[in-house]
Design a protein around this nucleic acid. Structure first.
Lengths: 227, 227
DNA sequence: ACTGTCAACATTGTCGACAATTAGACTAAA
DNA sequence: TTTAGTCTAATTGTCGACAATGTTGACAGT
């Protein structure tokens, strides 16, 4: 029951396919962070010409997964504490806004569906206690729906298309599967209640706290890891 | 004394040149809003092949000036009240955040330069009373510096690269040269003082108000014009 | 008159090759 | 040994042509 990604363009072209594949590989860390991207090599690897590949690279740059320098090539971004902090600063503000707008604009039916989703998460969570499933899919799915509920196209685009994959990259590569799962669930529930009560201000505040808590959790993980 | 645009990549390629040209033409309204973009036609017009042109189109899509549908072509975005509202909702939040961060991170020397810039604006404004110069260049230059002062790369990228041209497009095509100039100047001054006092919270608030006022001003203009 | 089908056209997506630029190795001089 | 310069090789930027897809108009059937 995955929600439709807004940027999924219906006529799927070769560039789209290779984009999704590379995106996944970078997020998963299969293409090492900081490593150079060779256009001819990737083209051969995916068995297509450089034209659609360059189209894909342009979109990878758009979601901050690679950095390109004219005439010098592209490199996979390197994760850093500074980058993580900047990213989460933005998310706190933007998803807070999304929450406030969602409280204003979400239809009652959408709110009901969101509640249903949370119930579903609860049961799944009980079954797979301690696994990273919730963080990987469930959490992001909840955030997704709230963002879409804001009904602000620019906001949706920035959060779901441009920052989303980077957030996932930090989570995946830092191994986010800690004990924050159950607490995060409670926070989601509180946010949903605020939205359902049409209390945009509270929803904003709770979402900011939720993301700040998530950030601190990752920072702790980062300290332990070293880098 | 224009400030360096962060996205100005040093080795300027053909794609860069045509991008800047089309960008300008769309913002200025020379390419009508809502009109279709023909790749072969534009390629002939700028006397280059379609490869760099498509690169330029990809970046135009990135800053929301055009919308592309696979296998069906690109269209210049249409301005709308809903879009304007969404855009300014975002700006209020994002530039507010930028202000708060700027109050924390700007060096004293940068603040001094910003004050100098405002003094310069004052004299220019007195000379060209009522003209749109201030709104066109000065105001944006002030906002630019504050955004850069936030030192948050993602935030800078979103505001300066992705939303900036769209904001200009609304301003230019709605003929923003009203009597808000002098009031805007005072607001800038108050924002700068808050930043200089390292009062991030106040700077945030003042910037939000400043942009909200600007939005109401444009909305009024939009009602008069009709659609 | 209206609708559905089909064919010709135009436009976009993709390809392989060439030109322009850069990175890296190697040489030579301080 | 270090450093500056040069040259080669590899990579990126650009080009023109072909394939795939979408659009437009005419035409036939209802």
């Amino acid at each position: 029951m995955l929600i439709q990604h807004p940027s999924l363009r219906l006529p799927i072209t070769a560039a789209d396919r290779v984009l999704l594949e590379i995106q996944r590989a970078i997020v998963a860390g299969e293409i090492t962070a900081g490593s150079k991207i060779s256009e001819p090599e990737l083209a051969k690897q995916f068995d297509l010409s450089r034209a659609p590949l360059r189209e894909a690279l342009a979109r990878l740059e758009r979601c901050h997964l690679i950095e390109r320098i004219p005439n010098a090539g592209a490199r996979v971004v390197k994760l850093s504490t500074k980058g993580l902090l900047s990213l989460y600063q933005l998310r706190e503000t933007l998803e807070g806004l999304a929450c406030r707008l969602a409280a204003e604009h979400m239809a009652d039916s959408e709110i009901a569906e969101l509640r249903q989703l949370l119930d579903q998460h609860l049961s799944t969570q009980r079954v797979r206690e301690g696994e990273s499933y919730y963080q990987e899919a469930g959490d992001l799915d909840f955030h997704y729906r709230v963002i879409l509920g804001s009904k602000n196209d620019y906001l949706i685009n920035i959060l779901c298309d441009e920052l989303y994959y980077l957030v996932r990259m930090y989570r995946v590569q830092l191994g986010m599967n800690g004990p924050r799962v159950s607490r995060a669930f409670d926070e989601h529930k509180a946010i949903l209640n605020a939205i359902a009560n049409r209390d945009g201000e509270l929803a904003d505040l709770l979402m900011r706290r939720h993301i700040a808590a998530s950030r601190r959790n990752i920072e702790k993980q980062l300290e332990q890891t070293g880098s």
